[in-house]
């Protein structure tokens, strides 16, 4: 049988480092992960990441931080898009703003996603970036520039800290 898609984040919430992948405005889920790669098999899903964005292919062996402009991840609700990001080594998402379903999908799986007015200009492609969800900052480790992340609503903060929606419900005793 094929390799299962990953569940929610299991490590404690902490600062993460990764090479920047930089995107513009209105980057939709069909660009991030074409529906052709919709599958229950983790290898197929991983191969679809950025299937049509030239020059951004990744083999998943290197840690990444995605930086994007407005309305990042608009379009489809397919969670395979978010799974493909995780399988490709993406540790955190910082965007000027997110498509709302995509934003929920990230936090529901425990992947840090923050809006930030400076997201699109923080780093050049490939520069090392640290995202610290506890301190609420993102830092370009090449230039030393640090910017503030917009704080999450307290509900989403709890979900992220718990490792995702299902761990949060488990903690609350809602999964009887």
């Amino acid at each position: 049988m094929s390799r299962l898609l990953p569940g929610p984040r299991t490590e404690p919430l902490a600062a993460v480092d990764g090479a920047a992948m930089v995107f513009g405005d209105d980057v939709n889920t069909d660009l991030l992960h074409p529906s052709y790669f919709f599958s229950l098999d983790a290898d197929t899903v991983r191969q679809g990441f950025l299937g049509q964005v030239a020059g951004k292919a990744t083999d998943g062996t290197r840690s990444r931080v995605l930086l994007a402009g407005d309305n990042f991840g608009c379009g489809s609700s397919r969670e395979t898009t978010m799974q493909s990001l995780r399988l490709a080594g993406v540790q955190a998402l910082v965007a000027t703003s997110f498509g709302r379903i995509f934003f929920r999908n990230a936090l529901c799986l425990g992947l840090p996603a923050f809006s930030c007015p400076d997201a699109a200009t923080l780093a050049e492609e490939g520069q090392p970036v640290r995202v610290d969800p506890l301190a609420g900052t993102a830092t370009n480790l090449a230039t030393g520039r640090t910017v503030a992340l917009t704080p999450l609503d307290p509900f989403w903060r709890q979900v992220l800290e718990a490792g995702g929606m299902m761990p949060w419900l488990e903690q609350r005793g809602s999964l009887t």
């Binding site: 609700s77 969670e79 929920r104 999908n105 529901c108 929606m165 299902m166 809602s174």
Partner: peptide, 12 residues
């Protein structure tokens, strides 16, 4: 919603 959100609805 995405699938994990719906998973939460199915369970709770």
């Amino acid at each position: 919603m995405g699938s994990t959100d719906i998973l939460a609805v199915l369970r709770t």
